[in-house]
Design a protein around this nucleic acid. Structure first.
Length: 690
RNA sequence: GGCCGUGUAGCUCAACGGAUAGAGCAUCAGCCUUCUAAGCUGGUGGUUGUGGGUUCGAUUCCCGCCACGGUCACCA
């Protein structure tokens, strides 16, 4: 296939410049791009950068280079020069034979994956104390789509999930359930497992806050008693007279100052209004004093028991995590997400300890007097990083070092380890990769943090405390419902069995959601407005799905029509050797072919940039361009039976009509196939009808 | 405060350093006795946060400023 016309032009341009102007230019200085739609040609060569070699005007350079290329590349039909842009037109048959050749190339744009593991994509990575929300959806969709894209470019991809199943958060849920749950289970309550565990987490936090407030008030009271008279308290006076009355469990300087200010604010508020600030007014105090409550200690105690392997605690932990996994499974299934490998932090959290010890021996890390281990990154412009607490327990970073090493051991040929994790952890990964490098791992440079921006609401961040978190299941169900409604309103899918109808509606609703999220560049923050439902028109998933369904309908009809007439040339599955040499392609047709031509490059770009949005935006372009074609020229013959004429009124002979029909069907079929493949790269399915 | 990121139409998003900055939504006007109107055609809407610089050319690269966000834990 001669799809490499671009590199041919680049190569010959270089030799051309050498031949004509006797100058050897670096290949990077030849800039080729698509001709903008307002000009009638196919490929544009920007000559401005060349003029410093050719020492002539842009126009003249373009003119001469154009001649040179035209004389040597048979596919070039002609060219024109506008303001230093060399616009090159390719001959008709180039496009036709391109379409012809790639029609049978079922792998067009795809490279078959190798047999050995080459790339691991870690994504999703949920905590087990709460259900999934919109942020997780973005993470999952990006991770899944990226995996698809990387497989399409020849990688064997391992999709990995690292479940955070241990820690204080799940203990909070466990404690709350044990204390106030009265034996409630997903079965007894009908509540989805992850939701139920989340409910108890919220319950715990609620009570914790209440208890913290009590605690604070008792401290306040103490302060008030000591610091008389209250109405004379000024911010500057707080520190000695009042603050010292607080139990001196506060140790760090940083917090000490912060909390002093917070107390000052609280007391002044009390002084002025007769009450202490609520949590909304001064979150800091509450956050800080949580750890001095009995509830917090109880949860902490539970964590200790868990770490000691206490049987009843482990039993409860397993039970509640299992509820959560069942719940997650449902959500994953709806999202079409699966993993090749699931890691659990309860199994990995101790990894990395030996590596830390080794690092100390190799003087990569420092052990301080209190026993804590640090990595000094100040030479790299970063801070010191803790790797092991003074009590010998490890922190998150330690675990990440351990799991990374473990994974490269497990999959020796691995070329890349990609972490799909939110941008708030950029610093963490920067440090992690740097430490891995310092430890001397050869693969340290193969780790990559795919950092994505968070999903914001119009008012800003989602906040669980304010109840603005968009629940994943709720959102999915809403999408389905909107889809059902829209389908009904439009009178679509009538006469189709309910079961099939439902499955199509879901496909569309899910397509709308996925496309909405994936069309945005991962690294950018995006805004989701829960009050306005996601559109089904315009630049949306359903629009592209619709285009696909339309094409399938067209092809079905074409099959029928062929059966009736019986004498049409091979359409879908055959081929005509002479196709493409007499037919004059029209602009609406060529625009679609040109986009098809771009498909392999688009996949490559998406893979290089780790960016599914590249695919999404291309899909929209293609669907749009196809619809334009579809609406402008007829594909199938009119009901009377004669074949469709080319240009209105300019009907050619019968052979040409047949050729045109064949060509347009092939163009439609190819577009449909590419839409399907491309949408699958986004994890979106396309319906045969809608 | 240090570091990182973002800023494009009323809103949501595009634009390998290239031509007059593009789409969709919203809004206005048209198109179903030819293949699915979840579609198509056209109108309205911009000093690309701001001020400099680099060059044939800057939304894109560099610097200053402004705004917003993230991050700087013996949290994960």
């Amino acid at each position: 296939m001669d799809a490499d016309i671009k590199s041919k032009i680049i190569e010959l341009s270089i030799t051309g410049i050498k031949d004509i102007w006797n100058f050897e230019v670096p290949s990077g200085s030849i800039i080729i791009q698509k001709t903008r739609p307002e000009f009638t040609s196919d490929i544009t060569l920007v000559v401005f950068p060349l003029t410093k070699f050719t020492k002539t005007s842009p126009d003249k350079t373009a003119q001469q280079l154009g001649e040179y290329l035209k004389n040597r590349i048979p596919e070039i039909e002609g060219f024109n020069v506008i303001k230093g842009f060399l616009n090159i037109s390719l001959i008709n048959s180039f496009w036709i034979s391109f379409l012809h050749d790639m029609y049978d190339d079922t792998r067009f744009g795809f490279t078959p994956p190798g047999s050995s593991a080459s790339v691991m994509v870690e994504f999703s990575s949920p905590n087990t104390n709460k259900p999934l929300h919109l942020g997780h959806i973005r993470n999952n969709l990006i991770g899944n789509s990226l995996s698809e894209i990387l497989s399409a470019t020849g990688n064997k991809v391992i999709k990995a999930n690292l479940v955070n199943d241990r820690g204080i958060h799940i203990c909070k849920s466990m404690y709350a359930w044990k204390e106030w749950g009265a034996g409630e289970t997903p079965e007894s309550s009908g509540i989805k497992g992850d939701k139920l565990v989340g409910k108890y987490y919220v319950e715990f936090e609620k009570r914790l806050i209440a208890q913290t407030k009590e605690k604070i008030i008792s401290i306040y009271t103490q302060i008030i008693k000591q610091a008389t008279p209250i109405n004379e308290i000024k911010k500057e006076d707080i520190k000695l007279a009042t603050f010292d009355a607080i139990p001196r469990t506060i140790e760090t300087d940083y917090d000490y100052n912060e909390i002093k200010d917070a107390f000052a604010r609280a007391l002044i508020t009390y002084n002025q209004t007769g009450r202490f600030p609520s949590i909304e007014e001064d979150k800091f105090i509450i956050e800080y004093f949580k750890k001095y409550t009995s509830l917090f200690n109880d949860a902490q105690e539970m964590l200790r028991k868990w770490e000691d392997g206490d049987e009843t605690t482990i039993f409860l932990w397993k039970k509640m995590n299992d509820w959560v996994y069942k719940g997650f499974e449902t959500t994953y299934r709806e999202l079409g997400i699966s993993f090749d490998k699931t890691y659990y932090e309860s199994e990995t959290y101790l990894l990395g300890k030996e590596i830390v010890d080794e690092g100390v021996r190799k003087n990569v890390f420092i052990r301080k007097e209190d026993g804590s281990v640090w990595c000094d990154l100040t030479d790299d412009g970063l801070d010191e990083k803790l790797l092991q607490r003074s009590d010998g327990t490890s922190v998150y970073m330690t675990q990440d070092i351990g799991t990374a090493a473990e994974r490269f051991k497990e999959f020796p040929g691995m070329k890349k380890l990609i972490y799909v994790v939110g941008s708030e952890q950029e610093y963490h990964f920067k440090v992690l990769f740097l430490i891995l490098k310092k430890l001397g791992y050869s693969w340290a440079g193969d780790c990559h943090h795919l950092s994505y921006g968070m999903v914001d609401l119009p008012e800003g961040k989602m906040k669980s405390r304010e109840g603005t978190v968009v629940d994943a299941d709720d959102l999915i169900e809403e999408m389905y419902e909107t889809s059902r409604q829209t389908t009904k309103e439009l009178g679509k899918l009538e006469g189709i069995p309910d079961k099939e109808k439902e499955s199509i509606c879901r496909m569309i609703g899910m397509g709308a959601l996925k496309y909405f999220i994936l069309k945005v560049d991962p690294k950018k923050r995006m805004v989701f407005n829960p009050k306005e439902s996601i559109d089904f028109e315009g630049n949306t998933g359903p629009f592209i799905q619709y285009t696909y369904a339309r094409i399938q309908s067209l092809l079905r009809k074409a099959g029928d029509w062929r059966k009736v007439t019986g004498d049409l040339p091979a359409g879908r599955h055959g081929r005509r050797q002479d196709t493409g040499n007499t037919l004059k392609i029209q602009p609406v047709e060529k625009n679609v072919i040109k986009l098809i031509f771009d498909f392999p490059g688009v996949i490559r770009q998406a893979a290089d940039e780790f960016n599914p949005a590249v695919i999404a935006n291309y899909m929209y372009e293609l669907a749009k361009e196809f619809n334009h074609f579809y609406q402008t020229v007829p594909v199938l013959p009119a009901k009377g039976g004669s074949l469709p004429a080319g240009q209105a009124g300019a009907s050619g002979g019968k052979a040409e009509d047949e050729e045109r029909l064949n060509f347009r069907l092939r163009l439609s079929d190819t577009t449909g196939k590419i839409i399907k493949k491309g949408m699958n790269l986004l994890g979106i399915n396309v319906p045969e009808k809608m």
